[in-house]
Design a protein around this nucleic acid. Structure first.
Length: 475
RNA sequence: GUCUCCAUCGUCCAGUGGUUAGGACACAGCUCUUUCAAGGCUGCGACACGGGUUCAACUCCCGUUGGAGACGCCA
């Protein structure tokens, strides 16, 4: 039997980090087993669902490169299919009409809660006589369909947790069809998973309590339930379920701050799963190769932004300059720099010069701004510390030596500096720091000699002259 | 409150009866060096508690405590 799994987000918000990881594990499991990975949009809540959100989900999945084999399917396209199963379910005697109104329910519920007891539907409509039902129907009283839960125990063997069991007395006669004749989630899921021949339901463990209910629907349908794998949740720093309140949870927000999709996928894969050894950096193919449910943790894991940052910086340094060039382009644009207007070879060198320092793609423009624009202001502390008479006088001499340098390359420049230091006996820093501030306005940045090579002889001399002849000295 | 799930460094993972309990992030320090959010090295730091089972428990069982999740005509 071919493995068929699905990711079933509801388009009521952005694609959540947790949903992304669930999608990833589904994807890995499908690829590992040569199965199919299917996208199904759970939009039975018509009021809260929207087209825009659906597009965002698809875009997010695309960005993560979690390509689905089938879909997207929309539950709203199948409303009638779900309801079609009602007569057959009714025949089993396992479901019944409930005419209780919200108000009645609320009232009875409050009474029970006042007594500090757990509320469960009290089955008021379970034993309605045929006549009463007919009468209600005649009066066009709205009703919902509920599933009758018999005595006994409900259990399933979870691929991650092992057997999970619950006494049926803890499960209420839940609703599967609303009074407006639309299916409620638990019902739609079962019908869809059945209809789509889903073999493995891989989802967050916040669905465990739903699973018990769904098993009863399968029972009434006379269908064997799929395998279940309930993933531990992703937590925030307070160890609560990661939610909008916790901070950034939208997958696209990570893209927009310059996280590489490969880094993101690698990072979330490792929350709740391990390749079996101490590897941290893995390609998607390695993950597919190594994926298995017995390497999935039972315990929820905290989303550690610092580690994501570290991992992203690793991926950035390991990316080629050419690839980075394309990735970084929009971030420069947003910063007001059109890198395409500059010599590409030069830009590639610029990217190379800082890629080990960047944590996010969005760091690049700031880190390299002085290559593209004139220096607007010099770091105050740097000026105080390095633009002092005795250091600048060396700078003046050095400038002349640089002027005579024909091969303005990193190594030749370095040689000039080394020679000068040797000749005069001053410390390297005494000349290097002032130069850096003069050329970039900053006290930190890429390797100085490489920076000078990239800037080019003319620009270097120009910037040095500007400092040496300006009134910065008189501060 | 009821039910369910869970429990190794601050965090993410290894460890499946006998280990000096391992790696990574973070943190601290040292170092390299021309700076740095980079590199290198070192350090700090955990088996929640109590009972069993066993020659032997971080590992198995039970309980306690703690945490989380679910308790919608939401998904």
């Amino acid at each position: 039997m071919t493995v068929r799994v699905r990711i079933a987000p509801s388009p009521t918000g952005y694609l959540h980090v947790g949903t992304a990881r669930t999608a990833l594990y589904n994807f890995l499991f499908a690829r590992k087993n040569n199965g199919k990975f299917i996208l199904r949009i759970e939009d039975t809540d018509v009021e809260r669902s929207s087209k825009e959100m659906t597009d965002i989900i698809i875009e997010s999945l695309k960005w993560l490169k979690l390509e689905y084999d089938e879909g997207p399917f929309f539950q709203s396209d199948y409303f009638s299919h779900y309801i079609d199963h009602i007569p057959e379910l009714e025949k089993t005697g396992g479901i019944y009409r409930c005419f209780c109104t919200h108000e009645e329910l609320e009232e009875r519920k409050n009474k029970v809660i006042e007594q500090k007891k757990a509320w469960k539907y009290d089955r008021k409509c379970l034993n309605l006589s045929k006549e009463e039902i007919e009468k209600n129907l005649q009066e066009k009283k709205p009703y919902v369909w509920r599933v009758f839960i018999p005595e006994g125990k409900t259990y399933f063997d979870d691929l991650i947790h092992g057997r999970i069991e619950k006494d049926n007395s803890e499960i209420e006669d839940f609703i599967i069809v609303r009074s407006d004749n639309t299916p409620v989630y638990n019902f739609a899921v079962v019908i869809d998973d059945y209809r789509m021949e889903i073999t493995h339901v891989i989802r967050g463990d916040d669905h465990i309590s739903n699973t018990f209910k769904q098993i009863h629907i399968y029972r009434l349908l006379g269908v064997k339930p799929p395998e279940f794998a309930h993933l531990p949740l992703i937590l925030d720093e307070n160890k609560a379920k990661l939610s909008k309140r916790s901070g950034t949870v939208s997958v696209l927000a990570f893209r927009d701050m310059g996280v590489l999709p490969e880094a993101f996928v690698n990072f979330i894969a490792l929350i709740g799963w391990s390749p079996g050894d101490n590897r941290e950096i893995l390609t998607i193919d390695e993950m597919i190769e190594l994926f298995s449910f017995d390497r999935v943790a039972k315990k929820g894991g905290v989303f550690d932004y610092k580690k994501l940052e570290w991992m992203n910086s690793k991926y950035i340094t390991n990316s080629s300059d050419e690839k980075l060039y394309e990735l970084v382009k929009p971030f420069y644009k947003e910063y007001g720099i059109d890198i395409e207007k500059f010599d590409k070879e030069k830009v590639l060198k610029i990217i190379f010069s800082v890629k080990e320092k960047a944590r996010y793609l969005k760091d690049f423009p700031y880190l390299t701004e002085f290559f593209f624009n004139d220096i607007k202001e010099y770091d105050k502390k740097g000026v105080e510390k390095h633009f002092v008479e005795e250091k600048l006088k060396h700078l003046k001499v050095l400038k002349e030596e640089l002027k005579n340098l024909d091969d303005f390359s990193e190594h030749e420049i370095e040689r000039v500096f080394k020679n000068y230091v040797e000749k005069t006996g001053i410390k390297g820093g005494d000349i290097i720091h002032p130069t850096r501030v003069a050329l970039s306005g900053r006290t930190e940045g890429p390797s100085l000699f490489l920076m000078m090579e990239i800037l080019g002889k003319d620009e270097v001399l120009k910037r040095l002259t500007k400092v040496l002849e300006s009134d910065i000295l008189k501060i």
